[in-house]
Design a protein around this nucleic acid. Structure first.
Length: 713
DNA sequence: GACCTGCTGCGGACTG
């Protein structure tokens, strides 16, 4: 039977009414498999290839919606995505008379109440809303979700490898536990590495043996155009902006400048250029610090613009699948930190027929040019960086222990240990370790033992009973920016947030008129000229493979005709600079420079390994400064032979760094900022968290063992 | 020079 014939009649009618000429390859494959088996599936296929339908067409054909209880649960990382998918799924469900309910922090309370009264159909939810239900209304978890047949997880790559992912994994395990049968899972993604045969991914869905991957790797035809404009100061070169303007003024375009401040700079300056020559005025900025309503307006504007052109300067807020309609072109300013990110950004463009789609890759310094080129070449090779899952997520365990105890309102140690043991998210954490963590939580009054049962303690109540409890990630403190009663966005408190200072925000220019420190409010008025806003943050980590590729480019003599002359000239210069080293293998050989009483080397490896190496070298007495962008170590140590022999003897298996890690936490507690719940762990567990998440000792050890320093001629 | 994500329950004012 064809895939179409396998679908139920109402779904076939839906497809006929949509006037689809055929089903997409991923849909054909998914329909056959999902209808025939109860396996879990991961559907991997590029953006806009019809993945949502690939999951929902067969699921809706297969599931029997009669009888009480919700049958399909759809989980999304974003509220905006739920709102988009709601409209699509609801349209589909009209053919089946199956109700669809949105359940997130901004969804209607009335609709939620109706679902509680009569649980049925499909629910679209966020992990945090599920968490809130587990903590506050645990009986509703049972009431709504004990009859689930399918769970659909959208954009699963955005969860993998993060605390938020382990959190979701734990929640899914807890839902499965109250389920009367066993639900199957269908996960969707555009970007998952196929290294290690998807082992992590299958583990994540809880049943590796019955989890299959369906992948459509048809590449997307796209032209890359590299342009190099060297940046003199902290501002973007005017020539770059002019070039970008000319190339994109007659298109619908997304620009990704990597940082919120730069996003504003691009939006404001392009808008000014356009004003001068009488071009369109549809220049917007879109990032987390632009007011939510303003962002929604921008998304709406893009979606409804069939004939009008626009330019949205944005961060990763527009990387995931929010529907903004057709985009002709994408411009990336300086390198992305990952291939996965590049794939998502490229995926946003090129749906207009008969028009070739371009990717403009601008670079403003030599190392960024090299990294951008490396990312592009790896993208062409269909490489995606592998995900690394935390083996012992102690911090998520702290959070989930509080959630389980609060939800149970009293639970014995035996039961608690059993609940943790049977939860695959914590399968590598032993009962002894869990007990030790529970004892510590009791010591700091997060838990209290009442006869045989544990309940939430006095200090625990303070964190469990706030709305901040439901997330696994930190949220920095910002001041709301308001102009004459209208919300614009938000800014952090910095040297720049002072009265009479002019800043860009939401693609416009403002003068700061008043700062209310108590209510964290900044009053502004429109202005004519200003500066880009300053935000703080950490750069995302770059994978070892990207850095390796950068070195590979430097030792090859490949020509890149998609690169402009200044770009090609810069690559030639860098190759010449590195030609003083006789590098044979980009995998093991690394340049070591000595001269003028100075010693430095280029590691060409990932951020985590660099960070670890820098820490270790400092610890063994070789003080060093790491320049992450250049993967370069400058040493306060000029004795080359001594350094080489010291390095040769460095074997991390024989040295214990636990004391050093504990010291690091005690001296600079902010190192642990990456983990919201880790601070409530015993100190030795905090050290383990640091060791496995912030650093990469294993990877570093392997790097050192294989490393072969090549000295300059 | 450095991204992003989400949110309960209750009380009180207001509307139909």
């Amino acid at each position: 039977m064809t895939a179409f014939d396998l679908l139920s009649e109402p779904i076939r009618k839906y497809i006929r009414d949509q006037r689809w000429e055929s089903l997409r390859p991923i849909q054909e494959a998914a329909i056959q498999k999902i209808i025939a088996t109860d396996n879990n599936y991961v559907l991997i296929s590029r953006t806009a290839s019809g993945k949502t339908e690939a999951a929902f067409l067969p699921i809706l054909s297969k599931v029997n919606f009669k009888g009480k209880g919700v049958k399909v649960l759809y989980i999304s990382p974003l509220i905006a995505l739920i709102n988009d998918q709601f409209m699509r799924v609801e349209k589909l469900c009209e053919y089946l008379d199956v109700p669809v309910t949105k359940w997130h922090g901004e969804a209607s309370k009335g609709a939620k109440d109706r679902l509680i009264k009569a649980p049925e159909g499909i629910v679209l939810i966020t992990p945090e809303s599920l968490e809130a239900m587990f903590v506050n209304k645990p009986h509703n978890i049972h009431h709504l979700f004990s009859t689930l047949e399918y769970v659909v997880i959208d954009e699963i790559h955005s969860f993998l490898g993060s605390d938020r992912g382990i959190h979701l994994q734990s929640l899914l395990q807890r839902i499965q536990k109250v389920n009367t049968g066993k639900f199957s899972t269908v996960a969707l993604s555009a970007t998952v590495s196929d290294e290690n045969k998807y082992a992590e991914l299958k583990e994540f869905l809880g049943d590796p043996e019955h989890t299959k991957v369906i992948r459509d790797t048809t590449p997307k035809p796209i032209n890359a155009v590299f342009k190099y404009f060297e940046r003199g100061n902290s501002e973007l070169p005017l020539d770059l902006l002019k070039d970008l303007y000319i190339r994109t003024r007659d298109s619908k375009v997304l620009v990704f400048p990597n940082a919120r401040g730069k996003v504003e700079e691009v939006a404001v300056k392009l808008k000014k250029l356009s004003e001068k020559v009488g071009g369109h005025a549809n220049y917007f900025s879109h990032h987390s610090s632009v007011d939510k309503e303003v962002r929604e307006y921008v998304e709406f504007f893009a979606k409804k613009s069939t004939h009008e052109n626009f330019c949205i300067s944005c961060t990763s807020t527009l990387e995931l699948g929010i529907d903004i309609g057709n985009v002709d072109e994408v411009a990336q300013i300086d390198a992305t930190h990952s291939i996965a990110s590049l794939i998502q950004r490229v995926g946003r463009s090129g749906r207009r027929e008969g028009k070739s789609s371009n990717l403009f890759l601008y670079a403003t310094d030599r190392w960024s040019l090299l990294q951008s080129l490396a990312c592009w070449l790896l993208f062409k090779e269909q490489y995606i960086e592998p995900i690394s899952m935390t083996q012992k997520p102690y911090d998520v365990l702290v959070h989930q222990l509080l959630s389980m105890i609060k939800g149970a309102s009293g639970i014995t140690l035996t039961q608690l240990l059993e609940d943790v043991r049977s939860n695959a998210a914590f399968k590598n954490i032993s009962a002894e370790e869990t007990t030790e963590i529970i004892n510590h939580l009791t010591e700091i009054d997060f838990l209290e033992k009442l006869r045989h049962e544990y309940i939430i303690g006095i200090e625990g109540e303070k964190v469990v009973n706030t709305k901040d409890f439901y997330t696994l990630f930190h949220t920095p403190v910002f001041f709301r920016v308001i102009s004459q009663g209208v919300k614009i966005g938000e800014l952090p408190l910095s040297a720049q947030t002072i009265i009479d200072e002019n800043v860009y925000l939401s693609a416009r220019i403002w003068t700061i008129k008043d700062i209310d420190y108590k209510s964290k409010k900044i009053e502004v008025l429109p202005a004519k000229d200003g500066k880009k806003p300053l935000f703080f943050g950490d750069a995302a980590d770059t994978a070892p493979k990207i850095r390796e590729k950068m070195l590979e480019i430097l030792i090859s003599d490949e020509k890149y005709d998609f690169m402009d002359e200044p770009g090609q000239e810069m690559i030639r210069q860098m190759r010449k600079y590195f030609s003083i080293y006789d590098i044979r293998s980009y995998q093991t050989d690394r340049p070591l420079f000595s001269g003028n009483d100075k010693l430095k080397f280029y590691s060409f490896t990932g951020s985590k390994v660099n960070r670890t190496l820098s820490f270790i070298l400092n610890r063994v007495g070789i003080k060093n400064q790491l320049q992450e962008n250049e993967s370069e170590f400058e040493l306060d140590f000029s004795k080359k032979s001594e350094f080489l022999s010291l390095f040769k003897d460095l074997n991390l298996n024989h040295v214990n760094f636990d004391d050093a890690l504990t010291e690091l936490i005690e001296n600079s507690p902010e190192t642990l900022n990456f983990s919201k719940w880790g601070i409530y762990l015993p100190l030795n567990y905090q050290a383990q968290l640091l060791k496995n998440r912030y650093f990469d000792f294993e990877g570093c050890n392997e790097f050192i063992r294989n490393l072969n320093f090549i000295e300059n001629k």
